Simulated scan of single mutants.
Amino acid sequence: MLFFSWLWVIATAIACSIWAKDIAKLKGQKDTQWMVWGFIFGPIALLALTAYPDLEDRRHQRDTASELSLIKDNVSELCRNS
């Protein structure tokens, strides 16, 4: 019985480490680091990872904002020239 308990703990740790790696890669975080945290802390690491910001989304928002500010600047120049 004790063997199956330890087997369950190790299987859960491996599953959490794989999920943490995949989620970290999607969020633009360091996937190897989160894989280790997922193995050590299990579901707690997954919960902590969900609280981290999505760096890919932030990069996209920053690029979009810079494009919009360029468009806004061009519109203001056109209005001044008219």
Rank of each mutant, 00 (worst) to 15 (best):
M1G: 10
L2P: 05
F3H: 09
F4G: 10
S5H: 07
S5C: 05
W6S: 06
W6P: 01
L7Y: 02
W8H: 11
W8S: 10
W8Q: 08
V9H: 08
V9Q: 13
V9G: 02
A11N: 09
A15D: 12
C16K: 03
S17R: 09
I18T: 10
I18K: 14
I18V: 15
I18F: 14
W19E: 11
W19L: 15
W19Q: 11
A20Y: 00
A20I: 04
K21G: 03
D22E: 13
D22V: 10
I23D: 05
K25N: 07
K25R: 15
K25I: 00
K25T: 03
K27Y: 01
K27M: 03
Q29K: 11
Q29H: 11
K30R: 14
K30H: 13
D31G: 04
D31W: 10
T32V: 06
T32L: 10
W34D: 00
W34F: 08
M35H: 04
M35F: 07
V36W: 12
V36Q: 03
W37R: 15
W37L: 15
G38L: 03
G38P: 05
I40K: 03
F41D: 02
F41W: 11
P43H: 03
I44N: 01
I44Y: 14
I44V: 12
A45S: 14
A45R: 11
A45V: 07
A45T: 07
L46N: 00
L46R: 04
A48P: 00
A48C: 14
L49H: 01
L49W: 02
L49C: 02
T50G: 10
A51E: 02
Y52C: 04
D54H: 11
L55N: 12
E56K: 15
D57C: 01
D57A: 15
D57R: 09
R58W: 02
R59T: 06
R59L: 13
R59P: 01
H60N: 13
H60K: 15
H60C: 08
Q61F: 06
Q61W: 06
Q61C: 03
D63K: 10
T64H: 04
T64K: 04
A65G: 03
A65D: 08
A65L: 14
A65M: 07
E67W: 07
E67R: 12
L68P: 00
L68G: 00
S69I: 07
L70M: 08
L70R: 11
I71E: 13
D73K: 13
N74P: 00
N74I: 05
N74D: 15
N74F: 03
V75I: 15
E77Y: 08
E77C: 01
E77M: 08
L78S: 07
R80S: 05
N81Y: 07
N81F: 06
N81E: 13
N81D: 09
S82M: 12
